[in-house]
Simulated scan of single mutants.
Amino acid sequence: MTLDAFDHEKSARITAVDWAALAEDEGKRLKALGVDEGAEVSVIHRGVFGTRDPLAIRIGRMTIALRRAHALAIEVEPV
């Protein structure tokens, strides 16, 4: 399941990231923020408009905003 489809406020572990689906600079930024295989994340907020963009995710003690297109490239499993 991809991160954009994952349940709100539940914990997940990143199982894979499709780095080829992301621009190189976007991938580097996400890696620098800790978004990589094995990291534990949770979706804490979704946008309210039609695309539900952006998503706010918690990774460690940090909260970051992701576009839905980025969340589609991140595969997760429930913890």
Rank of each mutant, 00 (worst) to 15 (best):
R52P: 02
A16P: 02
V48L: 13
I14T: 05
V17H: 02
V41D: 06
G38H: 09
E40G: 00
G27C: 00
R29D: 12
A32F: 10
L22V: 02
G47A: 12
E26S: 03
G47F: 11
A16V: 06
L55F: 10
L33F: 05
R46S: 06
H45D: 15
F49A: 11
S42Y: 13
D25M: 07
T51N: 08
I57F: 15
A23F: 11
G34A: 02
D25F: 09
D18A: 07
A56H: 13
K31Y: 08
L55T: 07
V17M: 07
F49M: 11
A39S: 14
V48A: 11
V41C: 08
I14E: 11
E26I: 07
F49D: 12
R29H: 08
T51A: 11
A21V: 00
E24A: 04
I44R: 13
L55S: 03
A16F: 09
L33V: 02
G34E: 05
D36R: 13
W19E: 08
A32P: 04
R29Y: 11
E40W: 03
F49Y: 13
V48G: 12
G38T: 06
A56E: 15
R52C: 05
G50W: 00
E24S: 04
A32G: 14
G47E: 13
F49H: 12
K28T: 12
